[in-house]
Deep mutational scan, measured.
Amino acid sequence: MNLTVNGKPSTVDGAESLNVTELLSALKVAQAEYVTVELNGEVLEREAFDATTVKDGDAVEFLY
């Protein structure tokens, strides 16, 4: 899956889609429990991480 992460191209191997929690784990995001996630310009509530799917071509920003 090809994404733009914090403005840079990134690839997650072996996945066509992941939820936000899985993406944080796959990318080994440090202190993931404290990060705010913006997906395609929309800031996500932490409670929505498990239910929100990240797909090929999406833009993700991790805000600390």
Rank of each mutant, 00 (worst) to 15 (best):
N6W: 02
L23W: 02
V54Q: 01
L39M: 04
S17K: 10
V43E: 06
S10L: 15
Y64V: 09
N6Q: 05
D58Q: 01
L39C: 04
M1H: 04
D56Q: 07
G14K: 07
E38N: 13
G57E: 03
G7S: 05
E22H: 06
A32C: 13
V43A: 07
V12K: 02
L18N: 01
N6G: 05
M1G: 03
D50G: 10
S10T: 15
Y34I: 12
A15C: 13
A48L: 12
V20C: 05
R46C: 07
D56A: 09
D58C: 05
V60H: 02
D50Q: 08
G14F: 12
V5F: 05
V60D: 03
L18S: 03
V54K: 01
G41L: 03
N40W: 03
L23Y: 00
E33K: 09
V12W: 09
L63R: 14
A26C: 12
M1W: 05
K28W: 06
Q31P: 08
N19P: 04
E45F: 10
S10M: 15
E22C: 09
G14A: 09
G57I: 02
L23F: 04
V37P: 02
N6R: 02
G41T: 02
L23C: 04
A30D: 11
E45D: 12
E22D: 08
P9R: 09
N6E: 02
E47Y: 10
T53H: 11
A15Y: 15
E61P: 00
E45K: 13
K8L: 10
E16G: 11
D50K: 07
P9D: 06
N19V: 05
T53A: 09
A15M: 11
D50Y: 07
A26Q: 08
T4I: 13
T11A: 08
G7C: 07
M1L: 11
M1D: 01
T4Y: 10
Y34W: 13
D58F: 04
L23R: 00
N40E: 01
T21P: 03
T53S: 09
G7W: 04
T53P: 08
T21D: 04
S17N: 09
E38D: 05
R46H: 07
E42I: 15
V35D: 04
F62W: 09
V35L: 12
N6K: 01
T52M: 06
K8G: 05
S25Y: 12
E22V: 05
T52C: 06
Y64P: 07
T4G: 04
